[in-house]
Amino acid sequence: MNEVRLDFLKELANIGTGHATTALSQMLGGRLFQLVVPDAQMLPFREAADYMGGLEQTVVGIFVVISGDVAGHMACVYPLNSAYALIRLLTGEETPEIDELGRSALQELGNIMVTSFLNALSKMTDLLLAPSVPGLAVDMAGAVWESILAGAEVAGEVTVIRTRFSAEGEAIEGHIIFLPNEEDFGKIARRCGLEGL
């Protein structure tokens, strides 16, 4: 039962992230992205803190609230080096720090990736998943991650779907994280013909 649920989550992640990286690839002039096998887990709260790893490392986090037929939260998290590379590819500018232009470029990129991810799920399930305006933070991984979990007000278990991606010829990698609301997750599963997940 749990196995079926996790497989289903991985499949969702594959489809969603596939669309999201295709959108990213189009923004970056056809650069190819590689998806690493998605990781789907139902984590007890106690283990959730360690899920990100490297809690003191600086990362860029983009956070979105999902509303509509399915409520939930999504986040994209990039290591700082990848964020710089993405800014350079998007704006053509080399910056020593993440300035306003860089922030808005990353925010836009997060927006497009999240929207593509959710659109793919919407099409598959005929359920509305509407993203909010994205929030962006450049900070310690631990602070970004716990703010995301607190924003989602996670209770006993956290359903996390994470896909890592990397770009060909560029040191770009990142995570796309989907935190569906527990009750609404069942709706997605039912629309896909899976009962009682």
């Binding site: 929030g135 962006l136 970004v144 703010s147």
Partner: peptide, 14 residues
């Protein structure tokens, strides 16, 4: 802190 101030989900941040 409020790391995502522009999201403004509630009048008072978490």
């Amino acid at each position: 802190a409020n790391l995502f101030p522009n999201l403004n989900m509630k009048s008072l941040s978490i």
